[in-house]
Amino acid sequence: MPPAIETVDLVKEYGDLRALQELSLTVEEGEFFGLLGPNGAGKTTFINTLVGLVRKTGGEARVFGHDVEDDYRQARDAIGLAPQEFNVDRFFPIREVLMHKAGYHGIPEAEAGERADEVLKRVGIYDKRNERFDWLSGGMKRRLLLARALVTEPDLLILDEPTAGVDVQLRHDLWELVTELNEEGTTILLTTHYIEEAERLCDRVAIMNEGRKVTVATPDELKTRGTDTISVQLESTPAVAPDLKAYAHDTRVSGDHLKVRVDDGGSIAPRLLNDLEAMGYEITDLEISRTSLEEIFVDLTRSEDRTVTRSSATTETDEETSERDAKREQEGVA
């Protein structure tokens, strides 16, 4: 069985702007795959190339082995897309909108009606079936987009920022539903800026930035790429950070704590305590915190130098660190 999605050196240019830069990505059938990246990373362009809303400039893109341009009918028939924008037919009640969409995919009218009812019930807006799109609340509109994607019973469900701006209840409902669908065998491609969402749902994630693939990994693998911080409370605060370069990426003094960034906090901590005691410090407390996936994501996407920091041992001053933290906050990932 060919992969659900396979792109090779996919390029999309808008004049001088390269929205996708030689993007090669494979999503296996049955996978729950996440596409993460800041705004403008090229996630939506990538999706739209698959469904025919963007014409690629170069490279190859296939859906279940069907070329998205040469075999566009087969490729599009396999995809259900819940886009980020509300692009729904305003002229008809939502049940009819779903029936039309099913019809375009070759589903006869009577069956299309049954399917429309079924998906409206599944997403919880069946009682609004005779309303027009404009009269639905924001959350219901989001649910309808999902219903429209499901009404054709796609093998590949693409969700572009499905939980952007929705309340907690709806977010959990959507998560539950898409998990169920994935368990039933539907391949899912999810784009999101919410790291928690990707961590919770996805088998693998690709991180994109500026149209490029930065990395592909499982959420767990990604987390192991981050570093831990051992925070040690000392009886007397040292004026300068002790030299721990043998295993620490950086060491700094913050209030009455010494913060030491290392690869694996659990195994380094005993050695660190011994070293500090040998240097004459008296330790009163110790805490190890792991880097969150969010911090790793920011690290991966914030600059051209995307090397994850395992091998780059540096000693930072407090000033440099807080500058970095402030920059992270400004860039944000939520």
Partner: peptide
Amino acid sequence: HGRWNEYIHETLTSPLS
């Protein structure tokens, strides 16, 4: 109107020739 409100995407993303 379909382009303006983007619902022409319903047709364009379908397997119709």
